[in-house]
Design a binder for these strands. Structure first.
Ligand SMILES: Nc1ncnc2c1ncn2[C@@H]1O[C@H](COP(=O)(O)OP(=O)(O)OP(=O)(O)O)[C@@H](O)[C@H]1O
Length: 696
DNA sequence: TCGTCCTCAACGAAC
DNA sequence: TTGAGGACGA
């Protein structure tokens, strides 16, 4: 292997060698930002003799962290067991909090709530406050609490700024929700970030310790940091100021969960002495792909100015396929993939199909199945969110944290033993009055009901044997002792499938079998809680990859299909009203195009089934923004030239004004009915005689 | 309390 | 189209 530095270009080398002080690498897609970051870590360790323990590298996914750890080890030709602190923000916070959460009254074994449990806790909070779940959507409340935390607003801060009925409700629920979480010894995803910031800000000595440890900090994908992550980074780097961040504001696509690309654009204000590196050579894509991507992003107003060029030839044209319907769209993709495979012996692993919403994957899956092509879907309904998996995990969570009432409530009646909603509520109330966790409470009851006794017996048995069992044997024990296995076996086909899923869970747990039982469980539960969709992408089998545009960030493939390139789908209908959201859709398109090494396809359909009825959407504005000379338009019947100057009546996407409902956007037209999304009144079906609707 | 049938809203992206 | 949640009877 050659000297690693030699494989970098001069600009990348500058970024790697500037060891001291703040450094910003602001550069476009595929310019080698992540590569520079990886090499910098290796350089710090190998050439500058800095201990890995003093370095903290933050990546966007656990998978990226794992790959980086491997690459660094290869670069420094070492298999040392010294800990490399390469992780995501969330798992970094979780690890530190295991040691420091006591400052906030949490024990080290706190539970990490997943999205599902969060919602359950919100509902419980609302029930306690006697709020009507039908009048106030718990999901909306959860989302607001989450945003507040990402902005570092605790319940007091939120209460003091809450205005309007809804926000005041949220403020109340927020308080009750935090109360529930504390009693459960549980933190949600957002707490992991916010609580660590609270500790660092309130305990200067603790902060100083970590500042001293992490003298060198590196952050990838800095454009998608939220306020909490930004603050955390600033706090940790404040002492030594050796902060290296890389990112691309054009690729900021997570504003809806609090990310703010101004964090990267303001870096030079936060650190006036920052050394700024621009990388302009792209090593991933052809010139046509870069030009197309640039043409799309150029329409955005809020963005930095950047250049990107490549040594590569212009390459393939962008192909735009107009399908007659969703099925035709899928068939086209299959035909193209087979054709490429015939021509170039390309592996299926080199193909990715990207869509805007998870719901679009189903139709594509069916096409792939029919064609007999192996595929993998990344994301969507996640493995760890399946009922049987969550049930198994709940047993394990309760074992790890007896205060986890949410876990207990999930499993106390599994298999059904007559503990229903009423009984559960009573137990909860009694435990609450006794100021105890529910498990603690029911294990110390004087005369428990037989059903409760039975459950306690199951848990006692598991508790007693668990110290001597490795993780996979522990799962076996849970499965048999609880009676869950018997229950599923009695269920027939569906139970079989569920048992298969549990078997898959077991094979994951086997990877932790070499760890001591005492620590294996908590490590496993933490990793499972923080696993991300991309983490599940492995190219072990040769298969076509299907995923959302968001999930594709940071990845690269030879052939990229962007499907459903239609107004209302992409850009999504919910974004059409808001200029900033539209810019984010555009950035998403930029991300999609720039994933490709060789060839990009856009596909759209004249009509497609949505909720079981046909909808017609015009093709995406992003297609219209592609340079004509780089684009090849194909229809079902064969290549055609672009139709110019389409006649415009009222079409989906048009902005309109309604006499009664005010401004809105046309979503679709079916026969005599137009569906319009109104800014104030939501989605309405109206007679299409146009009497009440005027173009804006 | 629990399972089944039925209605009706959902689908925006995820650590 | 699918899935969650309510109504209902056992
Ligand atoms: N100096 C270089 N010489 C050759 N290839 C390079 C060089 N730098 C990066 N590459 C390659 O270019 C591709 C993109 O690199 P990398 O993922 O680091 O870019 P990036 O800027 O992080 O991209 P993105 O912003 O799209 O995530 C990778 O395949 C990488 O190996």
């Amino acid at each position: 292997m050659s000297d690693p530095i030699a494989s970098l270009n001069p600009e990348q080398i500058k970024a790697v060698h500037r060891v001291k002080g703040p450094v910003l690498v602001l550069a476009g897609a595929g310019s080698g930002k992540t590569k520079a970051l990886t090499h910098r870590v290796a350089y710090l360790i190998q050439t500058k003799q800095i201990s890995p323990a003093n370095i903290l590298a933050i990546t966007f996914t656990n998978k990226a962290a794992g790959e980086m750890r491997e690459r660094i080890q290869r670069l420094i030709r070492s298999r040392s067991d010294k800990p490399f602190n390469v992780s995501t923000f969330h798992s970094f916070c979780a690890k530190v909090l295991r040691r420091e959460a006591h400052h906030l009254g949490y024990a080290a074994n706190f539970t990490i709530l997943d999205a599902d449990d969060q919602l359950t806790a919100v509902k419980q909070a609302m029930e306690m406050l006697q709020l009507d779940i039908k009048r106030t959507a718990p999901e909306a409340v959860r989302a607001h609490i989450s945003s507040a935390k990402n902005e570092l607003m605790d319940e007091d801060a939120y209460t003091s700024v809450a205005s309007g009925t809804f926000q005041q409700i949220v403020a109340k629920v927020y308080r009750a929700y935090q109360d529930i979480l504390r009693r459960n010894q549980a933190m949600d995803f957002d707490d992991l970030l916010m609580n660590l910031v609270i500790i660092f800000q309130g305990q200067p000595k603790v902060l100083a310790r970590y500042q001293e440890q992490f003298k060198y900090i590196l952050v990838d994908e800095y454009q998608d940091t939220n306020t909490a992550q930004y603050r955390l980074t600033s706090l940790l780097a404040a002492k030594h100021r050796n902060l290296f961040v890389v990112g691309d504001d054009w690729q900021s696509i997570y504003s809806w969960r609090g990310a703010n690309f101004r964090n990267i654009l303001n870096f030079h204000n936060d650190y006036p002495d920052a050394y700024i590196v621009k990388l302009e050579q792209n090593y991933r894509s052809t010139q046509n792909i870069l030009d197309a991507a640039h043409a799309v992003i150029a329409h955005n107003k809020n963005r930095s100015d950047k250049k990107l060029w490549t040594n590569q030839a212009s390459g393939e044209l962008i192909t735009v396929y107009e399908a007659s319907n969703g099925k035709d769209e899928g068939d086209f993709i299959v035909r193209e993939i087979l054709a490429w495979r015939g021509r170039t012996r390309a592996q299926l692993n080199n193909f990715v199909v990207l869509y805007r919403t998870n719901a679009q994957s189903r139709a594509l899956e069916e096409t792939m199945l029919r064609a007999g092509l192996p595929y993998r879907v990344i994301g969507g309904v996640r493995f760890y969110e399946r009922r049987e998996i969550k049930d198994m995990l709940a047993f394990l969570k309760l074992l790890a944290n007896p205060d986890d009432n949410l876990a207990l409530q999930r499993i106390i009646n599994l298999p059904a033993r007559g503990i229903g909603k009423k009984t559960l509520q009573a137990l909860e109330q009694e435990a609450y009055s006794a100021d105890k966790g529910m498990y603690d409470y029911i294990t110390h009851l004087n005369n428990p009901t037989p059903a409760v006794q039975e459950f306690v017996g199951v848990m006692r048995q598991i508790e007693r044997k668990s110290p001597r069992l490795n993780l996979s044997r522990l799962l076996d024990l849970v499965l048999t002792a609880s009676g869950y296995q018997t229950m599923l076996k009695a269920e027939g086909i569906e139970g079989e499938t569920r048992l298969e899923n549990i078997a898959e869970l077991k094979s994951v747990m086997e990877k932790y079998d070499h760890l001591a039982p005492a620590e294996a469980l908590s490590i496993f539960l933490e990793e499972v809680a923080l696993i991300s969709d991309t983490d599940n992408l492995t190219l072990a089998d040769d298969a076509i990859t299907l995923m959302t545009l968001h999930t594709a960030k940071g990845l690269e493939f030879d052939y990229v299909f962007m499907v459903g390139a239609e107004e209302n789908l992409f850009p999504h209908s919910r974004s059409l009203m808001d200029a900033e959201e539209l810019e984010e859709e555009r950035r998403l398109c930029y991300v999609g195009i720039t994933r490709a090494r060789q060839k990009v396809y856009f596909t759209h359909a004249e009509e497609r089934l949505i909720y079981g009825n046909l909808q017609a959407n015009p093709r995406s504005r992003f297609i219209d923004d592609l340079p004509e000379e780089l684009t090849e338009f194909v229809r079902r019947s064969g290549p055609v030239r672009q139709t110019s100057g389409q006649e415009r009546r009222l079409q989906p996407g048009d902005k309109v004004i309604h006499r009664q409902f005010g401004p809105g956007v046309i979503i679709s037209q079916t026969g005599d009915i137009v569906t319009v999304a109104f800014v104030k009144y939501g989605i309405k079906d109206l007679a299409a005689d146009l009497a009440d609707i005027k173009p804006k």
